[in-house]
Simulated scan of single mutants.
Amino acid sequence: MNLPQIRLQTQQAKINMTTTPPQQSIEQPQAELDLQNAKLEMKIERTPAKLTIDQTKAWEDMDLKHIFRRIEEAAQLGYEDWLEGIARRARQGDELMRIEEGGNPIADQAKVNSETPPKEFNIGWVPSHFSVKIHYEPGDVNIKWRHERAIINAKINDPKMDYKPGKVEIQMVQYPDIKIDFENLTFKGLNFEMNI
């Protein structure tokens, strides 16, 4: 028995893809930096400290005097004794002038003129307290700074970029195809019959 048959034969499409990957390169040049360091000036003004020690009085208390001081004291003592002598003689002259008023002025004056004054004795310190004079003036330090800002010049360099885009190439290797085949297939129409 001949059965009608339809045969289909297909062929799939085939493509070929060739890809070229993209390429990118980035180069970053270093920044250019110009640094100029500013000068720094420091000025120091110093007033030195001053210490004064005066031992003159201490040396005088120990009877170790400068010759000029001895001459000055001797002159002063002589001047005072001279004035005292003038005053004593004037006083005693006045007493003798009034001898008629009574008393014994000649004997009294002889006694006063012949006696030396009594010696005084007391406890003391050699040299005496605070005979060494100390004077101190503190020093001073004045520091002045002068500085300028540093000069910084910076130049930024842009990055260098190189980009090559990728490609995709598509090629048709095999086209699609369909084949239809008939067997034992007849078409019957009005008053005719036909093999397909």
Rank of each mutant, 00 (worst) to 15 (best):
N142A: 02
E41I: 04
W59M: 04
G166L: 00
A107M: 12
D108N: 15
I106K: 02
G124C: 10
I99W: 01
T56E: 08
F187K: 05
I143M: 01
R70V: 05
K57F: 06
M194H: 11
G93I: 02
G139C: 00
T20N: 07
L8H: 10
I99T: 03
D108E: 15
D181N: 13
T116P: 07
K164F: 09
L51I: 06
Q171I: 09
N153R: 07
G78W: 02
T18E: 09
I99E: 02
A74S: 10
D140Y: 05
R70Q: 06
I134E: 03
E148N: 03
E115H: 11
A38M: 01
I123K: 10
F121R: 14
Q92P: 04
L96C: 02
H147P: 08
E41A: 03
N16Y: 13
Q9T: 13
N2F: 05
E100D: 14
P176F: 09
I180Q: 07
L77G: 10
W59P: 00
H129V: 14
M161K: 08
A49C: 08
T19K: 09
P4M: 02
V168I: 08
E148C: 02
N153C: 06
I15H: 09
E27R: 11
Q92G: 04
K160Y: 04
K57M: 15
I99D: 00
I67E: 01
R88N: 06
L35G: 03
A87R: 02
T116A: 14
D108M: 15
I44W: 00
M62V: 06
I6V: 10
K164P: 03
T52D: 10
G166H: 01
M62Q: 07
R88H: 06
Q12K: 15
S114E: 11
G189K: 04
M62C: 05
W145F: 10
H66Q: 12
K43G: 01
S131H: 00
E32Q: 15
K119T: 11
R149T: 08
Q28A: 07
L35E: 05
E84R: 10
I152C: 02
P48V: 00
G93T: 01
L83F: 03
F68E: 15
P127G: 00
W82F: 11
Q23E: 14
F68D: 13
T56N: 05
